[in-house]
């Protein structure tokens, strides 16, 4: 390791106790034999590290805590809901709670109206089925009955048939 590399390590890991024990030993050995690196190590300690040794701990003035407390209390007051906000909140809450009931009532009313105005879908279905079965019977009678018998088979007993025949 050359002096430049040794001095880099002195300035960082060696000075800060971050170097491994073998590396520390290597640096110590080098310093013992190299006057230039020895002088460099002393310079770093004196001019870049000892500056911080006399620094006494500092505390912020009490006013800082008072300001912090004020800011926290102000924030809490600002965040606390006013009477109007509380009232609106309760209104909103009750509306939200009842909304499903309103929706259910509306859906039920619509279904009821459809059933009343259009009739039961089951009833409609029965009428169609009845009509189709009678129509099928007529078609079958047309195909199988000899001429002349059709008149009776085609008799549906409707008002128009009574009038015509």
């Amino acid at each position: 390791m050359n002096c430049k590399r040794i001095q880099e390590i002195i300035m960082t890991d060696y000075l800060d106790g971050e170097a491994s024990l073998p590396l520390q030993d290597q640096i110590k050995e080098h310093i013992a034999s190299c006057a230039q690196c020895r002088a460099f190590e002393q310079n770093v300690r004196r001019n870049a590290q000892h500056l911080f040794k006399d620094i006494s701990p500092v505390q912020p003035p009490d006013a800082v805590w008072h300001r912090i407390k004020e800011a926290i209390n102000e924030g809490q007051t600002r965040n606390a809901p006013s009477f109007l906000e509380r009232f609106l909140d309760s209104l909103r809450e009750s509306f939200i709670v009842r909304r499903p009931a309103y929706a259910f009532a509306a859906a039920f009313t619509i279904i009821l109206m459809v059933v009343v105005f259009m009739g039961s879908p089951f009833r409609q279905q029965m009428l169609v089925k009845d009509y189709l079965s009678r129509k099928s019977a007529f078609m079958l009678a047309m195909n199988s009955a000899p001429n002349g018998e059709l008149d009776n088979a085609a008799n549906f007993n409707t008002a128009i048939e009574e009038y015509l025949f």
Partner: peptide, 22 residues
């Protein structure tokens, strides 16, 4: 971290008039 500490110390040494290295 190493690099910033090295540069910081070199700058402090330069300010206090100490030799910066080889």
């Amino acid at each position: 971290v190493r690099s910033r500490l090295k540069r910081a110390r070199l700058a402090l040494m330069a300010q206090t008039g100490a030799s910066g290295g080889e």
